[in-house]
Write a protein that binds this DNA or RNA. Structure first.
Lengths: 130, 130
DNA sequence: TTGACATATTCCTGTATGGGTATATGTTAT
DNA sequence: ATAACATATACCCATACAGGAATATGTCAA
């Protein structure tokens, strides 16, 4: 099986840098395709294709204005991504803290006691190691 | 050109659901490959391959323990993802707010005044529309 | 209707997957 | 040295890109 479709979810859609650029660009104002082409310096067909993907995943909204199509980022659709990454937020604080502590007191006192993100499905806790 | 390599950055690496599962699993404790295999119910070679990708992107740390390899999530490497998605945080609040406002007062008073994420490169502002 | 303008879609192609299976590499125990 | 255990790599394959070029679709203007 190849990689999952870019249209399968926000994670896959956003993996492409140009699409992130587009989302940034469309975050505050709705814009016409031509504006994206000019501003991001991409080929028009390329932009249309990227927009197609973003649209399929719900990352952008579209509206017709005469002959133009106005796109705008749908921030809501980015939330899952943000929430998933937030799961690790406190971890990197801890990790930095740990490094600090190790540097200050040169004794090996490890503190391990975070929260939920542990076992996903089976919850089949092996030995343990830290 | 096909899609960018999964090892090109965290965004691409994390696009694969199994890899996110693995990162979740390795978030709190370092674990041996076999434990991941058992817990996530994946084939061993598959897990090794995913770990290879995660390792190349710096999303996990490895350490040898006898014949076992102990992996652990490197939360730091997830930050870029979190920061990018955070850019849109206030937007979805605003969008929800807007919907609310529209529902309450049925007059069309749009408020547009966010922050930076607008033009990426050229800064070629078209008309305006909200 | 015809043409200009704006955007979308189609076709073609090289390539990097991810899964499955088999096998190589590395480490410990006997 | 040999076998068992733990992981990593190598192969093979079907597939979904993403870019480029050409063309189709849709809308407004004259």
């Amino acid at each position: 099986m190849p990689r999952a479709a870019t249209t399968s979810d926000a994670f896959n859609a956003v993996a492409e840098p140009r699409r992130r650029d587009i989302l940034n660009y469309l975050a505050l104002q709705e814009r016409a395709v031509g504006d994206i082409v000019d501003s991001l310096e991409l080929e028009q067909p390329s932009v249309s294709k990227h927009l197609r993907v973003l649209r399929d995943v719900g990352l952008v909204h579209v509206r017709r204005d005469g002959r133009r199509m106005l796109y705008r980022t749908n921030a809501e659709a980015i939330r899952p991504l943000h929430e998933w990454s937030s799961t690790f937020e406190r971890l990197w604080s801890n990790q930095l803290l740990r490094v600090k502590q190790r540097a200050e007191l040169k004794s090996g006192t490890s503190n391990n006691s975070d929260h939920n993100i542990g076992q996903p499905r089976n919850t089949k806790q092996p030995k343990e190691d830290a």
